[in-house]
């Protein structure tokens, strides 16, 4: 068992992020200002703050999907720290493959690929045997109440909730030491929310550092060890 007392896995220092909209006359929108956040192993931190406070922008920045203007985003990757704000693309891809998992709100995949393969791929990319990855994918999908008859179909025609669960399975199967969850329960019913709460609890017990955006309060209360509040940038500046 890992030490779950917690050591830092993700740290940000002085993160600033603004968007410059060149198609709208070069308007600049500040979104994040001076964000200082630490997430430890074995804990789940949930971002809070009003709509427009930059929760999703912060999540995407932490994954290297958005480029921050200033500050550092330090990720504990194979016993050293990698700064995603300055790392080259190949290093960011290596961090994502081995250390940093992400569950987005939307599923974006190659069309016509069966669900089971989409989920298993997240594991084979990390070097797992294909047959073993498929077995684990099946177990995880069933646990998220996605019936076996759907496993060999591509997810394009699935409902929002079903796609969300494919996304969750894909995010959890890799067993990454750090997991970012962007509204993982947004389109799920109560039974499936409970399944997610169970997965998060297990991941925490295994030492995973988790950061989430969770709007539904029962889920939030069930998984969060603490909240991290964000304020809209303009207000923070005033």
């Amino acid at each position: 068992m890992m030490n779950t007392a917690g050591h830092p896995m993700l740290k940000t220092h002085g993160v600033h992020k603004s968007f410059t909209l060149h198609l709208q006359g070069g308007t600049t929108m500040p979104v994040l200002e001076n964000v200082e956040l630490t997430v430890n192993s074995g804990e789940c931190v949930v971002l809070s703050g009003p709509s427009g406070a930059g929760k999703s922008t912060l999540m995407r920045s932490l994954y290297g999907n958005y480029r921050v203007g200033e500050g550092s985003i330090l990720i504990r990757h194979q016993d050293s720290w990698v700064d995603l704000a300055t790392a080259d693309p190949r290093s960011i891809l290596a961090v994502r493959r081995d250390t940093l998992g992400y569950v987005s709100q939307f599923l974006r995949v190659v069309p016509r690929v069966p669900t089971i393969e989409i989920v298993a791929e997240a594991l084979t990319l990390r070097g797992a045997d294909h047959a073993e990855a498929v077995t684990r994918a099946r177990t995880l999908l069933l646990r998220l109440n996605l019936p076996e008859r759907l496993h060999n179909l591509p997810p394009a025609t699935f409902s929002g909730g079903e796609q969300q669960r494919v996304n969750l399975a894909r995010g959890f199967i890799g067993g990454h030491p750090i997991l970012l969850l962007d509204e993982p329960t947004a389109s799920l019913d109560a039974i499936n929310r409970d399944a997610v709460v169970g997965l998060v609890a297990e991941a925490k017990a295994a030492g995973t550092a988790i950061l989430g955006i969770v709007h539904d309060l029962p889920t939030r209360d069930a998984i969060a060890d603490r909240l991290f509040k964000l304020y809209p940038a303009q207000m923070a500046a005033a």
Binding site: R60, N65, R67, L93
Partner: peptide, 16 residues
Amino acid sequence: GLTDQVLDDPQHPYTQ
């Protein structure tokens, strides 16, 4: 740069 970063957070006017 990184494909998803360039496409989701394009910096240059032309990429936008």
